[in-house]
Design a protein around this nucleic acid. Sequence first.
DNA 1: AGGTAAATGAGAATGCCTCTCAATCTTGAT
DNA 2: ATCAAGATTGAGAGGCATTCTCATTTACCT
Lengths: 139, 139
Amino acid sequence: MTNPTQDSESELRAEGVRITRQRLAILHVLREATDHPRAEDILARARLQDQSVSQATVYRTLAVLEKAGTVLRNEFDGTGARFELADRTHHDHLIDLDTGAVIEFHSARIERLQAEIAAELGYDIEWHRLELYGRKTPD
Amino acid sequence: MTNPTQDSESELRAEGVRITRQRLAILHVLREATDHPRAEDILARARLQDQSVSQATVYRTLAVLEKAGTVLRNEFDGTGARFELADRTHHDHLIDLDTGAVIEFHSARIERLQAEIAAELGYDIEWHRLELYGRKTPD
DNA sequence: AGGTAAATGAGAATGCCTCTCAATCTTGAT
DNA sequence: ATCAAGATTGAGAGGCATTCTCATTTACCT
């Protein structure tokens, strides 16, 4: 009888995050997104569902959700943050320099090497960012 | 009879970059830096050598030097770019979340894995960004 | 239902960075 | 050395993403 949508809301409530109309609209946008939208895009899409959502609330909500571990913030180019739901398994990004397309990938070997390197330097990794920027290999 | 300082200036000149008093001051700052200074820091330090350097020139020069391959731009936190000379061998960064210290490291194995992964996805890597964020391992 | 602290909208404010433009340099050619 | 042509510069205005302020509204516990 549980569904993922209700689950994530309960989890948020359990963390002391109040569920408002606006936050539901923003969460909905993030759940439907297949890209990595910017705050601006999220605002536009959220307003389709709830006309009242403001820019300030989008930024505030994204900050709240990020702190709660529900969303991830990315900074691929220098033109502002891009967001995604943190509900799937961890992955890194490959950005196509020609099209701007963002491809997700994961490598357990790289993850392991990162931890090894950090350990050698006397550190525990809290999180990391790995982005590859490239172009399609010519045939 | 050549020295690295003169070399990099000749190289820049060869690329069509004019060597001005202000650019020399900025290059000097970057050569002396042991940290990863922000534009603001570079401006302050450059002015110690040449009072006339302006903020606009710092940004413009950093953009010119970046395009020329002389400096690297980093975005560790969301609070603005940090720069470093690109004269040493390639490296990635480990950022200490408690102190903000930036530790440089390099792993040929990770580099190789990155290339492999990109190749599997049909891409050639142009450049990449790998940052580890962590804390000192407790004893 | 009622009280209280949290969340919101609108717009002002901030911070980093880029642009504009007239004045001043760098440089290659003379 | 001198010159012309074009690049670079300083100062301040402008731009853009993001955050803040504050009066009003809302979620949520009891």
